[in-house]
Write a protein that binds this DNA or RNA. Structure first.
Lengths: 347, 347
DNA sequence: GGTGGGCATTTGATCGATCAAATAACACTT
DNA sequence: AAGTGTTATTTGATCGATCAAATGCCCACC
């Protein structure tokens, strides 16, 4: 294997020193234009690529983000995180960043991984998904002053206004409201909501969207709305059964908005082809069976996360310790994908 | 931020030199046991973690594998690669390896990424997915003597016996044969195959499994089998239409085995609840709607890939330039997941 | 004409680890 | 008692880059 060229080799060819080559790459503005061109020509000629590890050793930065990949995504909705990962990788690539994966068996193990990766200068920052209220990981990262951003709000009280950390999230409330309004516009009166039992940060947020849309768009009483608010854990058959129980006990339903595509599929099974149902996440399942669903703009989430960490462009971390250092969070708006369910449910 | 301990600090505490500490970590057998224990205690006491970048700079190895993540997986079956990625990350973690992601717009771009990552000592080897016949990537990697393993056979002639490179694959022929035999055992006589048009390495392999099982288990003539062999590109509606055309033109079908869950869903739509259908990949969709499907053992694929690269255990590459250096490929057997489709198709 | 300031570039030191060669410690011959 | 091996440990050099400080150069200014 032929020896790879180093800054020294490039410098020799261009007739300058190591450091000037380094400057051309890292602070081009301090190098005289004609020198810079000469160096750039030498770089191209030799096919020089900086040695990432050497650079990391010296700078203690890695241009790499760490993200945990769960051992196994649970069924139908797990694909959201995978799609986020794709989007994140793509957006990161655009900035010259890399994504490094790791797994962990439990939060403590994950924290061990954090230290190992940071100490080894493997990663500059972490991206966390599936955060929850009182998440020990975020607490630990804050205490140890490690940069990170989460996909998902911290659901603590008033963290919206003065968040402890950077986060990006999707406005689930808006998405479900859009879905509800769409159904109302199509003539439905009694739109039910099938979602996860409270308390659940994400779930309660989505429920709120439905409730507000119903309050604004119908004249149903709070009691009516309570009855139309159906709770079920996630899953196709468990969702189907929840709807069946509600119907059996006399509830009249024109349409259903759901907190996930799994639940939506369950609702479809329970209600048949004539009752419109809208899901959430726009998973491949929804696409395959022609189910309307709320699509999360994961590209925006990914680019938002990177902007919070790295600023408008570039691949080095931005200091956001002070409140004045810029925005500390971002809420993106999902959009409703309307489909015509001519297939499965009509036979 | 407190300065992280280095080998020198550990050595000071343990009363030994840098190099001895290094030896304890890398070649424990050359250190006297009592010294080793002393050093290990010091490591634990200081919470020392080796600096990955420094090690890489010196050794020119990274303990990291690179894998390309496609910008967007196409629909229903894309999840197979995602699940493989999860399995790979998990297995790699077990060996102290990391996975680094990257994207590429086209094969040339991907090759540029290969060089960049190798030159920067970012990765030791690559894992390739979705390889195809005459893939320029594999050719380039072979020419440039870069270590890699593919998930997927090279489908060239006779590469089975003397493969140019390391590969792991799933025996699709066996999986489809299992599915076919299952349907025959349940009483079906005329089992059709709905798969991708030839030539397609993966697709033809799966078709072969069906054909052999039918030849062994039925007395249908080659002409009958040709008629039951239905070709369609991947997709729900396109698969449904292909089946409908076949039925309309007078084909009698007892059951269908498909090359993917997408096609299987299409077959379900065309044939209704009474005709058994078996899919392939065991995607979340299959699980959600209660569709029998062939499950690929992605854990085995992942661990097989690592074994080929790294040997039985450990995290350094094994030299496999010579034929005598051990196995150069692995074929794992999938298994059929039988489900009862009581839901969607029965209403 | 000497002094000082700004700019472009170079030189010495360093990041944290491992490799290769040198040394120390100890047993075994002859 | 000197010589030869063997094993355990230490020291000097190095990987490829960047940081910090030094150098050289040109020009303006009093």
């Amino acid at each position: 294997m032929a020896n790879l060229p180093t800054v020294l080799d490039v410098g020799r060819v261009a007739g300058v020193s190591r450091q000037t080559v380094s400057n051309v790459l890292n602070s081009p503005d301090v190098v005289r234009p004609e020198t810079r061109e000469r160096v750039e020509a030498a770089i191209a000629q030799l096919g020089y690529r900086p040695h990432a590890s050497a650079r990391r050793l010296r700078t203690q930065k890695s241009s790499t983000l760490g993200i945990r990949l769960d051992p196994m995504t649970n069924g139908i909705s797990g694909s959201v995180l995978d799609r986020f990962l794709h989007a994140l990788t793509e957006q990161a690539d655009r900035r010259g960043l890399r994504i490094m994966l790791f797994t962990a068996t439990d939060p403590d193990d994950e924290i061990r991984q954090f230290t190992a990766m940071r100490d080894g200068a493997d990663v500059d920052a972490f991206v966390l998904t599936s955060t929850f209220y009182g998440d020990p990981r975020t607490e630990w990262l804050i205490e140890n002053a490690m940069p990170f951003v989460t996909f998902g709000r911290p659901w603590g009280i008033d963290d919206m206004n003065d968040p402890q950390h950077l986060w990006v999230d999707v406005d689930g409330s808006s998405g479900v409201a859009q879905a509800t309004e769409h159904l109302l516009a199509e003539g439905a009166k009694r739109v039910a909501y099938l979602g996860w039992p409270s308390p659940s940060g994400t779930g309660d947020d989505r429920r709120r969207g439905w409730r507000q849309a119903m309050e604004n768009g119908t004249s149903l009483t709070p009691t009516d709305l309570d009855a139309l608010d159906i709770a079920s854990d996630d899953g196709v058959s468990i969702g189907r059964d929840a709807i069946r129980r509600a119907i059996t006990s006399g509830l009249a339903v024109d349409a259903v908005v759901c907190a996930s595509d799994s639940l939506a599929l369950g609702a479809l099974l329970a209600l048949g082809p004539d009752v419109p149902v809208i899901g959430y996440d726009n998973t491949p399942v929804a696409e395959a069976i022609g189910l309307s669903s709320v699509e999360q703009p994961l590209d925006e989430v990914a680019s938002g996360a990177l902007e919070l960490l790295m600023g408008g462009s570039g691949s080095t971390l931005v200091d956001r310790t002070s409140v004045a250092d810029g925005p500390r969070h971002r809420l993106v708006t999902p959009r409703l994908v309307v489909r015509h369910r001519t297939d499965l449910a009509t036979r």
